[in-house]
Amino acid sequence: NHQSTMSPEEFISRIMEAEPPEIYLMEDLKKPFTEASMMMSLTNLADKELVLMISWAKKIPGFVELSLADQIHLLKCCWLEILMLGLMWRSVDHPGKLIFSPDFKLSREEGQCVEGIMEIFDMLLAATSRFRELKLQREEYVCLKAMILLNSNLSTSSPQTTEELESRNKLLRLLDSVIDALVWAISKLGLSTQQQTLRLGHLAMLLSHIRHVSNKGMDHLSNMKRKNVVLVYNLLLEMLDANTSSSS
């Protein structure tokens, strides 16, 4: 497989090229926000970003060689984590603010108008602060994003068919490649061996925090949809339904 013979440098170069373009909300934001208007803007942006996320995933070396079922499972499990990590990356140089897009920036206080969202904003801001303290580099960021995608669904059931088994093996090799790439990116920072190991650990530990915020966010969005605060449609609805039905 080509990705197993690819150097970590080449792997990072490919995932850097896969990065989605900057996306704009392109709405006239009427402030102050209402609960409905803020949720509508957030979900509109998420829906646009999701379409680009599929295209991004397809450019991760080896992803399209996985079975279609595995591709679908991985994306439906990680989509909100990926959106949140992107949000943290855009916000890393803006303490106290969440940069959802260049034309849609919110302070934590603006979260007050949506019931239950300030808690999520605070968790997002806390993780962003941690990335700021660590001085997260772009190469590390793209590796973490690919790790979230590839590590999102470790199925508990054993592969039943040859195709499933092959796809599972490809996925494990892909995870090896992305870990190698992150280790390589860290090795370029001029740290001691011990500091490199610690940095790898700290970055990996942040992923569990992102999974936790994503679960909170998923519950929040499902509640907002159930209460008819926001109309969820298109790809976002499909991803949300997939998630809630698999967890119920």
Partner: peptide
Amino acid sequence: TSLKEKHKILHQLLQNSTSPVDLA
């Protein structure tokens, strides 16, 4: 088939090569 039915848009986007910008 059920997986494809449940994730129609996702399935379509994964399978086709149309520019995602056009679809958005």
